[in-house]
Design a binder for these strands. Sequence first.
DNA 1: CTGAAAGCGCTTACAG
DNA 2: CTGAAAGCGCTTACAG
Lengths: 356, 356
Amino acid sequence: MTVTISQIAAQTRVSPRAVSYALNGQPGVSEATRQRIQQTAREMGYRPNAAARSMRSAKTGHIGVLVRNDNSDRLTHLMTFETILGINQGLEDAGYVLSLVRIGDVQKGLSSGSRVFTEQVLDGIIVLCEMPDQLDRKVQRLIPNVIWLESQSWGDQYCLRRDEAEAGRLCAQHMLALGYRSLVYINHPGNASEADRSAYSAIARLQGVREVADGAGVPVAEVPFVYDKPSGFDQMAKLFSQITPEVAVVVGQAYHARWLSHAASAAGLNPPHDFGLCCCDDGYDVSMMWPGLSRVSFDRYGLGVAAADMMCQRLDRPDDDCPSQTVAGQWVPGNTAWGPNHAALSARLTGPDSRP
Amino acid sequence: MTVTISQIAAQTRVSPRAVSYALNGQPGVSEATRQRIQQTAREMGYRPNAAARSMRSAKTGHIGVLVRNDNSDRLTHLMTFETILGINQGLEDAGYVLSLVRIGDVQKGLSSGSRVFTEQVLDGIIVLCEMPDQLDRKVQRLIPNVIWLESQSWGDQYCLRRDEAEAGRLCAQHMLALGYRSLVYINHPGNASEADRSAYSAIARLQGVREVADGAGVPVAEVPFVYDKPSGFDQMAKLFSQITPEVAVVVGQAYHARWLSHAASAAGLNPPHDFGLCCCDDGYDVSMMWPGLSRVSFDRYGLGVAAADMMCQRLDRPDDDCPSQTVAGQWVPGNTAWGPNHAALSARLTGPDSRP
DNA sequence: CTGAAAGCGCTTACAG
DNA sequence: CTGAAAGCGCTTACAG
C-alpha cells in the first residue's frame, strides 16, 4: 500500500542507497539517475516513513506543548491558544510537529498521563502553564529539552515571560496621567489552588501598580475577585454600589475585564462614564472584539514564535548560551478610562471606535 | 544514554524477547523473571522508543488536528481551543498523541506546509476548519483517516457538526416568547473569502431564525457586520441610533455578541434595557465571563471528545458503520433579553447574576 | 559513481 | 518457558 524506498529502487533498477541519496539531495548519484529516481518517486506518491527516519536519526521531530487541562480545570485560559498558534508557526518553519500535551491529574503526578511521558516521543517540550515544582522536575526528568513559557519556573536560561510588573506600572502611570487619584485593583484572591496557578503574575502586576501609585501618594484599594462563584457577584455588587467616575479600576487579566464589563452593563454602569477601567493584559480577541479597552497589550502570538525559536536553538546548538527573556507590553489608550474630569457626554457622542 | 531493551536483557541475562514479553504483559515468560525484568527496567528508567514501536506496528500513534492558521488569518477562532482540548482528552485516553497542524498558505496548496503532509507522520486527522474542497481532497489523499468536525464537508459518515439551524430556531422562539415583535439579525456579510469560512453555519442559523419568525409573521432585518473594519463601526453606529427596547438583536457568534456589547456600552446602551440581545452560540469563556448572555449553549469540549471517539472507532473498527452526527445546543435564558414590556428598572435592580 | 551490508530499537513467528 | 533470528524502512560508512 504505502511506497517504500526499496520499491522505488526496484522500479528504477538501482540500489536503495541511490534512492535515498537522490531524494535527499546528497552527492553520490549521477544527475541522470537522480532525475529518473525523483520522477518515479513522485509518480509512485512516495513519502518517507517518519518512524524509520526517526529511528536512524535519534530525533523524533515532535515538540510538545504542555498545557494545564486536568480534570479540576478542564480549560486553561483560552488565550493560551494564541500563543500555541505562534509556537506552531515557529516549530513548523523549523520542520517540527507540535504535540499538544496536557497535565494529567496533578495529584496523581503523571501516572495516568499522555504517552509522551511513558515512551520516548518528544525531542523537547515547551511548558506553557504553571505547575507544582515537583511536577516540573518530573517533566525535566522525562523529557530532554524544556523551555518555560509564562511559567512559574525561572532560571538564567530557557525561560520566557511577559513583564507583568511593567504592565502594572504602565496601567498605574496612565491612570494617574488621566487624573485619577483613586485606584481599585481587582485580582484573584490567593487561595491555595489558584495561588499555584497565577501567583507570580498576579503578584508582579500588583507590585507594579503599587510602586507607581505609592510614589504619587495615590491609594490602591484591593478587591478580591472570584468570577465563577456566587460570592464574586456579591463582591461586585458591593463595588458597583460604591463606584464613582473618580475611581479607576485596574484589573489583571482580560478575562476579569470582560466579566466586569458585562456585569457593570447589566447593572446599567458603563466605563468610562461611571468609572474608569483598564487592564494589565489583553489578547488578540480583545483587540478585535473590544478595541476600546484601555490596556497593556502583549503579542502572545509573537511570544509563541519566540519560544519556538528558543527551542530550536536549544536543539540545534545546545552548547550556546540561551538567556532567559522578558517581554514588555505596550500601552494602548482606549475609551474605558478618560479621566475623572472628562465630560461624560463627549464620551457618549464619540462612539465605540477608539482606534487611531 | 537512553536505555534499550537489549541493555535490560544484558543486565538481567535474558534475551531481548523475554524483556519485550515481560514488559508488555504477554505470556511466555515465567512470573519470576518477569518480576525481575520489570524491576530492572524501572531502576534503569526504561522507556520504549516510540519510533521503533511505530515502525513495527505500522502505526504512528499521532493524530492531527487541522486548524486554519494561514498568514492571512493567523488566528482562527480562539474558541476552537476548547474543542481541541476535548479532542486531546479523548485521544489521550485512547493512547494517541495530538499533533496540531495548520493549513499553510491556502493559495499555495500544501507545498510549504507541515511535515505531516510530506512524510508519513499521522494515523489520521481531524479537520477542524472550513477550507476549499480542493484542499479537502488533498488532505484526504495525503492522510489516511479523516474526521470532519465543524467543517463545510458533510457526508454520511465521519462528520460531526453543531445543529446551527436549530440554534437559530431556538433564539427566535425565545425572543418571540418574550414578546419581541421585531428582530434584527447581525451576521458577517458574505464576501468571497469569508464566505468560504463561515458560509454553511451562518446560512443555517439565519434560516432557522427566519423559519420561526416567518411562521409568526415577525420581520427579520438583516444587518451585515464587519467587526474588524471601520465600516463596521459606522454600521453599528447607525444601528444604535435606531435601536429601541422593542427590538431583539440576534447574533450568530459569541464574538459578535461581545463586540456588540462593548460597542453598545461605550455608547451608553445596555441590554436588556435599551435593546434585547441573544446569541446562537457560546463557549466556555462566555459561560464564565458573561453568564448573563441569553444564548444557545454548545458543549464544544464534549464535541471534541466525540470527534476523538469517532476517530478511534474509525481506526479500531474501520469496517463498522460510523454515521455522521449533528449535536443540538441548549437554550440558556440570560439577562440580556427580557422582553419589550419588562420594566427596565427591575432589570437594573436585579444585578449581574442571572443564574438560577 | 554505485552496490551490498550493517544497524537504529523494537516485536514476533520459529525452533529448541 | 526461552534463545536466536528476521524484519519494519531508512541512512550511511564501506568496498568496489
